[in-house]
Design a protein around this nucleic acid. Structure first.
Length: 516
RNA sequence: GUCCUCGUAGCUCAACGGAUAGAGUAACCGGCUUCGAACCGGUUGAUGGGGGUUCGAUUCCCUCCGAGGACACCA
């Protein structure tokens, strides 16, 4: 809907000015509003309010086919009220498109690689991995819904020092070699006795996959560092390329790029070089238009380094987006529980999923902006509290189902089709009905916006908002038993709400309970 | 020491540089003979301190205070 209004505005103002339209939070500010008059004011040499008034006049001259009312208000906002017919029309679009509602068609679909989780196969998946995991899973869904072509990738660090240390940690646990500070010491090490480093890594990766399955986090590409980069000689090729270009230089017996080491003086290649090769593979060889890497905040220094140095390989820097997730603090009994793979005192993803359902864990992580240093209150999560927002949203969905079941709406021809009993959606014009239809119409905007700024938590907020408005509608307007055409129209509205919930839950990866 | 992120109601969190800073939770009050009350309505309550940028700052800049995290020829 925002896009449509922008186009209307552009017809009047012309191009060249960045037009912003937002949905209003309060009814007295219209359904949608724009601040474009503030930007127009200096050009027209008028006050923002005068510019706004002029804009409204031009709208009136052109006729308000779209809007019920357009109004200029101090200090210079222009507010729009949509005609109810428009919302009713959107409703029939929802009923027709069903699971494809909100699916956008992009002029330039991109081939996008989202790389997430990618925990080293040196220990179980931690709860902290969950945050990036759920986020990446849903971000990929959003981008797909926005019309892009997605690959969900897990970069398996199955080569290098960490795996070597894993092997030594097992030997140390068996008492075959002396213990060292850097060795992994978790309980899980004991279960790996007798395994070689490689066997242990394979085993742990399988465990990680199981945990991801429990959390319903999906990957469709498992990119092995060892197989795809080391064994194929890609690491060396990239090193040669960097040497040839003169970007890499030798110092103190090691090879450097910028202030990072590519090859150590003992001849071993570094993780940094492997990472360069990995991104070369993704963006040049496999030709992704965009690589989105989701990392923990503890890598931020490294992220800057990689972004900076990757241009040496001829990769444009905006083809790589690194998203950092702030770390999660686990709180229980008002105290923080420290997580550490190395020391072996940590909460795993499996632990968490034993305590709370995947829906609760997922929703809880996704509710918060990635920038938040969030606390996961284990006590609260354990309670299976009914006040958890995910239940609130799911309950609204269940209410839809219940109404529809009771009325057997599936037997009606859905609105918008050329059925024998065409539904008269014009009857939907009460305040709550308008509000509900307005909220439904927002869904494509939410997808579009989130595909642009990656603020996935907007979706959980939308789910809760929609649930709130629907619950409100439920209290105020009777559906089953309303009688006649009105009942049919309201049933169509409920059906549309159900469809949009299915879309939102689908993108969020939340289940759709039949009953609660 | 250098760099990054964050400080918003008692608590957990929202708010593309926009209007009267929103939710949930906690506290208190009210609502089921009708589609499930896991719901709805109401009351109380907040931008860490100080400067600046501008029509307008929770948002951008500087500074101070506080919390977390990075600063390897580890991955």
């Amino acid at each position: 809907m925002i896009l449509e209004i922008k186009i209307k505005l552009q017809k009047i103002i012309g191009k060249g000015i960045d037009i912003e339209v937002t949905s209003s939070e309060k009814e007295e500010f219209g359904h949608y509003s724009t601040n474009v008059a503030f930007k127009l004011a200096p050009i027209l040499k008028k006050s923002p309010f005068e510019a706004a008034q002029e804009l409204v006049e031009r709208f009136k001259v052109q006729g308000l086919s779209f809007f019920e009312k357009v109004e200029a208000v101090q200090p210079g906002f222009v507010n729009f009220w949509l005609k109810p017919e428009l919302l009713q029309k959107e409703l029939s679009v929802i009923l027709k498109k069903r699971e494809f509602f909100g699916k956008l068609t992009t002029k330039h679909p991109q081939k996008v690689n989202v790389e997430f989780v990618s925990a080293n196969p040196t220990g179980p998946l931690t709860m902290a991995n969950g945050r990036g995991g759920f986020y990446g899973d849903v971000l990929a869904n959003v981008l797909e819904k926005a019309g892009h072509k997605l690959t969900r990738e897990y970069y398996v660090n199955d080569a290098g020092n960490q795996v070597k240390i894993l092997g030594e940690s097992i030997l140390a646990a068996e008492g075959k070699i002396p213990d060292k500070e850097e060795y992994y010491k978790g309980e899980y090490i004991k279960n790996l006795k007798g395994k070689t480093a490689k066997q242990a890594a394979v085993f742990l990766l399988k465990e990680i996959k199981n945990s991801l399955k429990k959390a319903d986090i999906k990957h469709d590409s498992w990119f092995s560092e060892d197989k795809n980069l080391h064994k194929k000689g890609e690491i060396k090729k990239v090193l040669e390329t960097l040497k040839k270009k003169g970007a890499a230089y030798e110092k103190d017996g090691a090879w450097w790029l910028g202030d990072a080491v590519l090859v150590k003086s003992n001849g071993e290649t570094t993780y940094f070089l492997a990472d360069l090769a990995y991104h070369y593979d993704k963006l040049i060889k496999r030709k992704f238009d965009l690589a989105i890497d989701i990392w923990g905040a503890d890598h931020h220094g490294y992220a800057e380094k990689l972004k900076k140095e990757i241009s040496a390989l001829g990769i444009e820097k905006d083809k790589l987006k690194i998203i950092l997730t702030q770390l999660v603090r686990l709180v229980s009994g008002g105290k923080e529980i420290k997580m550490s793979k190395r020391k072996g005192e940590f909460v795993t993803m499996d632990d968490l999923l034993d305590l709370v359902s995947p829906d609760v864990a997922r929703f809880f992580f996704l509710m918060h902006s990635l920038d938040t240093h969030m606390d996961f209150d284990l006590d609260l999560a354990k309670e299976r509290s009914r006040k958890n927002p995910v239940y609130y949203a799911q309950y609204a969905y269940v209410r839809c189902l219940h109404i529809l079941r009771k009325s057997k709406v599936e037997k009606f021809p859905p609105a918008g089709r050329q059925g024998k009993s065409k539904v008269d959606l014009n009857l939907l014009n009460s305040d709550v009905e308008i509000k509900l239809m307005l909220e439904l119409a927002k869904f494509p905007d939410i997808i579009l916006q989130t595909a642009e700024d990656y603020q996935v938590h907007r979706l959980t907020k939308y789910a809760v908002d929609l649930a709130g408005i629907f619950h409100n509608f439920y209290e105020k307007e009777r559906v089953v038993g309303a009688g006649g055409d009105l009942e049919v129209a309201r049933l169509s509205l409920v059906l549309a709400v159900k469809i949009v919930f299915e879309n939102v839950f689908g993108v969020l990866g939340i289940s759709r309970p039949e009953k609660m």
